[in-house]
Computed example of a mutant assay.
Amino acid sequence: LVLQGQMTAGMIFASSLVSSRALQPLDQLIGSWRQIVDARRSWKRLETALAARPAEARKLTLPDPSGAITAQDLFFIAPNASFGTEPILKRLNFVIGAGEAVAIIGPSGAGKSTLAKLLVGALQPTGGSVRIDGADLRTWDENQLGKHIGYLAQEVELFPGSIAQNVARFDPDADDPAIVEAARRAEAHELILSQRDGYQAAIGLSSTTLSGGERQRIGLARAFYGNPRILVMDEPSTHLDGSGEAALEAVLSAAKAAGVTAIVITHRPSIAAACDRVMLLRGGVVEAFGPSGDVLRQSTAGKGLPPQRNTVVTGSFATTIRGTSHNVCFGS
């Protein structure tokens, strides 16, 4: 048209701009075609994964637990373990009464932290079961049971937010008096008030404003939030000084007085002595489980009992039968 004189040369540039604008969506589509194909494949994989594990049916709301814990043939192997790997826990059988304080002691690698995670439902057993008030842990509604369990992990993780939000487990309906009460029960109220912004002090995963002991005390307050019936503490004295350890003993004594089932993993004899009974765990088996004084004397003297094969424990009596599959129970 330009050569024939029917259009000016400037229209060449105008038509080029208009056509590029019109074709731009097609250019973008072609340029991102690989991402579209990858997204479609990912969606197919997600659909397959969801279909393989349908949503669980609603679980019945059981009566609030009193805190009695029973382990039956509890067995655990790491999910990614290779064939022939030694199990971490080997057929544990024991009973912890409601309101009882139990210390779990033993060398590193004995399976203490794994047992703690199994007792609170953070891990699923390879075999056997953990029962709360007679009901298998897997049959409890997680939202209901979670309110009645307080757990302090060996490595305390605090999440981005305020101290109050961490103590309240980020409950949107948290009650301020309940947050303060949990901190008081954990002997952490004065520590929190000493922070620049008190309960509103901002903390996070990489926060360096809190020491290890302070983070541990705040984690303990989080475990106490909501007046749980079961309290599991994994090495709660790791970062504590003398005053912190004394506060921990006071916390344990208060929990016992309140009828809370307290399970504490520790290497401190003073903390273990403050408990009703002590469980000596070694190599994934229970070597001794009885009154704290008896087990601590045995552990100090280096006298180990034969590894437990099948043991049921109630009250303060236990028996182990070697070479037989029978369980024997003495009433408390």
Rank of each mutant, 00 (worst) to 15 (best):
R297M: 02
V328A: 14
R277F: 03
R282L: 06
V312Q: 14
L280V: 05
Q308F: 09
A301C: 05
V286Q: 06
G283P: 09
G284Q: 05
P306T: 09
A273Q: 07
L305D: 12
T311N: 11
L280K: 04
Q308D: 13
G293Y: 00
A318Y: 05
V285Q: 09
R309C: 10
G293A: 04
E287I: 06
N327L: 15
Q308V: 12
R277A: 00
P307Y: 10
N327D: 14
A273I: 00
I321N: 14
G284C: 09
R282D: 13
V286H: 06
S270I: 03
S325I: 07
R277Q: 11
V295M: 07
G304A: 14
G290N: 06
L281P: 10
V278W: 02
L280S: 05
H326P: 00
M279Q: 04
D276C: 02
G290D: 10
P307N: 11
T314W: 14
P306I: 08
V328G: 08
A318L: 09
V328W: 12
F317W: 07
I271E: 00
G293N: 01
A273K: 08
V295A: 06
M279L: 13
F317V: 09
V313Q: 15
P306M: 10
G284K: 03
A273F: 04
A274V: 01
A288W: 01
V295S: 05
G315Q: 10
M279T: 04
I321H: 15
S270N: 07
L281C: 11
A288R: 03
R322M: 13
G290Y: 01
Q308M: 15
V285H: 06
V328R: 13
G290L: 03
S325K: 12
R282M: 06
G293C: 00
P291Q: 03
T311E: 12
A318T: 12
S316M: 06
R322V: 12
C329P: 08
V328Q: 13
N310L: 15
H326G: 08
S316A: 10
F289W: 06
P306W: 10
S325N: 13
M279Y: 04
F289N: 01
A318M: 11
V285Y: 01
P291F: 04
A301G: 07
R309F: 09
R277H: 10
V313M: 15
S299I: 02
F289Q: 03
C329D: 13
A288E: 02
R322L: 15
P291T: 01
D294C: 00
L281V: 09
S316P: 03
G302Y: 08
G283F: 03
V286A: 08
R282W: 03
K303R: 07
G323R: 12
V278M: 02
T300K: 11
G315I: 11
F289C: 04
H326T: 14
N327M: 15
V328E: 11
C275A: 06
A274K: 01
G283W: 02
